[in-house]
Design a protein around this nucleic acid. Structure first.
Lengths: 249, 249
DNA sequence: CCTTATTGTGCATGTTAATGCCTCCTTTTT
DNA sequence: AAAAAGGAGGCATTAACATGCACAATAAGG
């Protein structure tokens, strides 16, 4: 990757996030922190970013890109994604389904990641096409337009032939007692199958969804291996931790 | 190869790729890296590229240059798409594979279209999610990043369970005598199967591809039902028409 | 047809740029 | 205040670069 390209990416990140952390950039762009520091220094000299301890700040207002950016909560989801990335290692077989949070995750994976990704979500597949060392396997089915994932009998049947190291589940609701639930039954069926074919299961969730529930149960909450979230009250955290879930906040 | 020719090619590459690497160019154009460096230096002096360490960047947005035919060809493709739409009726089962021309078609379908579309291309599927009355069935497989389609054994096997009224084939080359061909063998296998499960086959092609050929044959040209193209010479048109192909220009 | 200038190219040379690591120092956090 | 995290500057390594030179191909002129 060219130096100019990398710096362009940093500016692009900064456009969405209003601040960037050097150590995060190092992971995302697969270069050493020293290089990131040099980049930030340069960009600061050009007046394109404001260098601060441990990272850099955006100068001026963000450039609005109508096609992709919707809301501020992106930043929260990006932060969840950055924490989740620590659990993704080279040579894993990953199973990733849909959801905007998962899409943010995929857009922030280290560029050098070497992995096999299985997904039933066209947007996830397309995002992964930027990663040279990631093999993408799409699972077919009937496109469910609300959440942009392929669902149906074919999908479940194909999943029967698969084993994954880590399933990154896009979730809508989670309740420590009842479990993970979802409004759509067909999505629930596919997610349930995905849980059953994966060694570990990771989910990211914003704190406001930590004790909500929908009508279709995907799996009990202790099916999760990792739950990535924001700052939560200690008692809620303990509730999940007691079930053997690795809570990261 | 002439120097000017080579530099023209470099500009052409840059138009599609927004960056070029000197060492890559050396291989692609079969000259030494020194020569490439001299070329890039020259082009930089003329302000046509921005020279950076290890390569060069495009200056400004993609060039609207007639020699590269980038923008023009988009217009042409949209025109082809508009002609092709006449052959798409409500309640059809359509099989659509990848390619920019097909994507243009999908983006210009009537919003009221009521149909079932089967596709192995994530971008096509995503574009179709805007159509309320179109059911989208995705065929899975291994994502082939160059052309953004799912390919492989799974893909072909899934196709065995399908019958379509009309297959809209994205094509690269067609020669009236030899047939439709494509550089990638795995893509050829999938396309061939798609032809065999469809009642009718439609392809759109710009006139400059009307008598070219690649190495892997998909099917004889008379497998086509409709060939949508630009203005072509009467004799060429007759050549295709004599094979029972409905040529539209 | 042969000579000769011109140009483009590849190779050998020393030089510079980009990056990662290391050590020592500074800032931040606990 | 101690510990941890971040940063600056130096050094080493690698890839990319500029330069000079030689050779080949081409074009012009005799």
């Amino acid at each position: 990757m060219l130096k100019e390209e990398r710096q362009q990416k940093i500016l692009h990140f900064l456009n969405d996030e209003h601040k960037v952390i050097a150590s995060d950039l190092s992971k995302r762009l697969s270069v050493s922190e020293d290089t990131i520091r040099r980049d930030l220094k340069e960009l600061d000299t050009q007046g394109l970013v404001k260098r601060v301890h441990s990272g850099a700040l955006r100068v001026g207002p963000p450039v609005v890109d109508f096609s992709t950016r919707q809301n501020i909560s992106n930043e929260v989801k990006i932060n969840l994604a950055l924490k989740a990335i620590d659990f993704i290692k080279d040579n894993m077989v990953l199973l990733i389904d849909g959801g905007t949070t998962n899409l943010h995750l995929v857009n922030n994976l280290p560029l050098s990641l070497k992995a096999t990704v299985i997904t039933n979500s066209p947007p996830i597949a397309m995002a992964l096409s930027n990663y040279d060392y990631v093999e993408v396997n799409m699972i077919g089915g009937t496109l469910f337009k609300e959440s942009m994932v392929n669902l149906g009998i074919d999908t479940v049947e194909t999943l029967n032939m698969i084993r994954a190291d880590l399933y990154i589940m896009g979730i809508y609701n989670i309740d420590p007692h009842i479990g993970i639930s979802i409004p759509s039954i067909s999505e629930a069926l596919v997610k349930r199958k995905m849980v059953s074919v994966s060694t570990e299961v990771l989910a990211m969730v914003t704190s406001d969804k930590l004790d909500t529930v929908s009508n279709h149960i995907v799996c009990p909450s202790d099916s999760l291996t990792y739950l990535i979230t924001e700052h939560v009250k200690p008692d809620v955290k303990a509730l999940y931790a007691n079930k053997g879930i690795n809570v990261v906040d």
